[in-house]
Design a protein around this nucleic acid. Sequence first.
DNA 1: GCGGGAGATGCAAGCGCTTGCGACGGCGTG
DNA 2: CACGCCGTCGCAAGCGCTTGCATCTCCCGC
Lengths: 343, 343
Amino acid sequence: MVGIDDVARRAGVSTATVSRALSGRGHVASATRERVEEAAAELGYVVSASASSLATGRMRNIGVVVPFLNRWFYTSVLEGAQRRLMQYGYDLTLYNLSGSSNERSTVFEQFLLRQRVDAVIAVSLELSAEEVDSLHALGKPLVGVGGPIRGVPTVSIDDVGVTRLATEHLLSLGHTVIGHIGGDVDAEMSFHMPTNRRLGWEDALRDAGVEPRPELYFPAVFTMESGYVAAKQMLGDPRLRPTAVVVASDEMAIGVILAARDMGLDVPRDLSVVGIDDHELAPFFGLTTVAQFPEQQGERAVELLMRELEQTREAEPANLQLPFELVVRSSTARPRPEREPRG
Amino acid sequence: MVGIDDVARRAGVSTATVSRALSGRGHVASATRERVEEAAAELGYVVSASASSLATGRMRNIGVVVPFLNRWFYTSVLEGAQRRLMQYGYDLTLYNLSGSSNERSTVFEQFLLRQRVDAVIAVSLELSAEEVDSLHALGKPLVGVGGPIRGVPTVSIDDVGVTRLATEHLLSLGHTVIGHIGGDVDAEMSFHMPTNRRLGWEDALRDAGVEPRPELYFPAVFTMESGYVAAKQMLGDPRLRPTAVVVASDEMAIGVILAARDMGLDVPRDLSVVGIDDHELAPFFGLTTVAQFPEQQGERAVELLMRELEQTREAEPANLQLPFELVVRSSTARPRPEREPRG
DNA sequence: GCGGGAGATGCAAGCGCTTGCGACGGCGTG
DNA sequence: CACGCCGTCGCAAGCGCTTGCATCTCCCGC
């Protein structure tokens, strides 16, 4: 295994110079630097991560904690974070909490605290005060993505804004009886998000002079099937007869479209549906949606972290609100002139 | 930061004893061990990963390389691997190749060779001989999941077996005009898999005395949309008129179901479809499929690695074939007595 | 022409563990 | 009863880097 002194010998300098030349820290004459780089390349030298870490106290590795893996949002965030981290020369070590419930404490106690990561990104997780504290006690920066964490910088979207935008789109088309299928507050790991999205729907309606009807809200759990079931209930109730529905995620929205189809309703003629996400399947189903950009969220989270890590100054816990935008496809249209939504 | 000698002092022993007591290597009187563990717990001591790695040469971290993240198969493998690794006390660092094409070489040259991982798991990747060699040169065990890699232990399923089983299911129901929608050999990173799956379809047909017709095979790219498009072509061609189709993945198969529906065909009355995977959406669509168990594949890959890592003996490159099984749902049925499949 | 400063490099002391080797008793065996 | 072995533990030498400090050279300005 070729080490730093092999390189030093070959380049005719000291190991200190090799270290400085390769890391870019400290002054090295450019001629010397080239000679060192050449020697390193010829020998195929790469620094030992552990030795370097031991000496510097930095692992160049950050931990990303996600509640699930099998969901578009998380993998997208992961993808963005990974890409950006690689550019910074950092590794990403993955912690997935979806296993047994005690996996969570194992992750925290055994792994995150084990000095294997310089910082952690928590995706859509509501961390307890102790969890945050234990990380901070170790001097490990922490940023959240998705759910807000008290006292921790977070990148996210404006959750009330997205459903507000979706609802406004529907209102502008002339809809007034607009349902909402959203996350079940009890069932999710992050309870703010579903609540906020519901709020956006209500706010937009009120601003338009329409009083939101509680019976037009149906809870679901962010899966296609759950959206399907909720839609069947909503559309099957003759007292409701919504002409449009805003759905808190694209996966659920697709379930809604399928449900409508199965009930003989035409989308968008009989029912307009708009989702949130711009999931990869949205174009295929012609789903109008409010796009959020999870990859970008991952990237920004990394940037926040890097700023805290590379500079010495404490980062102000600035919560970054990322942009979102309406993508109109074929699942929304003006309501039918007749007030009867059924075929 | 509490270090090993803080623990040693508190327990009244040497650091050597602390190390041995906590790591379980070497003989330590059980009374001493308890005293040490107690002291460590009281101080909240956790070993420094870098110091430990430097001394032992082991990182207790393994790299997992995936071609994409946004696909059910990969995230499932990842999930399984992660869970098992955590049980062994290992970290998982994630490398995703889906970015730019030069990301691949960066991953190999800059990261995997950087002594940050003890071993690597390559998921559905055809590694070049140099890539394999460079890893072996560093003494890093390597196991593949999904695609076979020459000279490397691999865990996978019998790709010809799965489509054979799917086809036999259809044959046993009485179908004889059975189409196949499979991966496009040119478009995929792993070229064996689509070929083998096509082979399974052909073999089963031949064994039943039916000559497979090449025009009943349609290539696609493992997405729902691509399956949809291929199905439209297949079902739209009046010369073909298949009564059933075996599809190389569930996502594509769902596309096929949707296409059939859009063409006014009833599944399974007018068309039986069977997929491969047992994707999380399969139950929702009532899709009959051949289940493979990617999480299990991830777990087994880890086990293979651990055997190679923990024991000294060289692992024989035993390729592990994992089980698969037919899951019958509502997308398959006997063909209609009439030979006319159209409504 | 000389003092001072800045740039370039080397020396060597860690970073916090692990582990081979040796010391020391206590106990089983011939 | 003496010998040797084994279980238990400490000593100290690394593991392969990084970096503060010292040294030396060269150049600049007065």
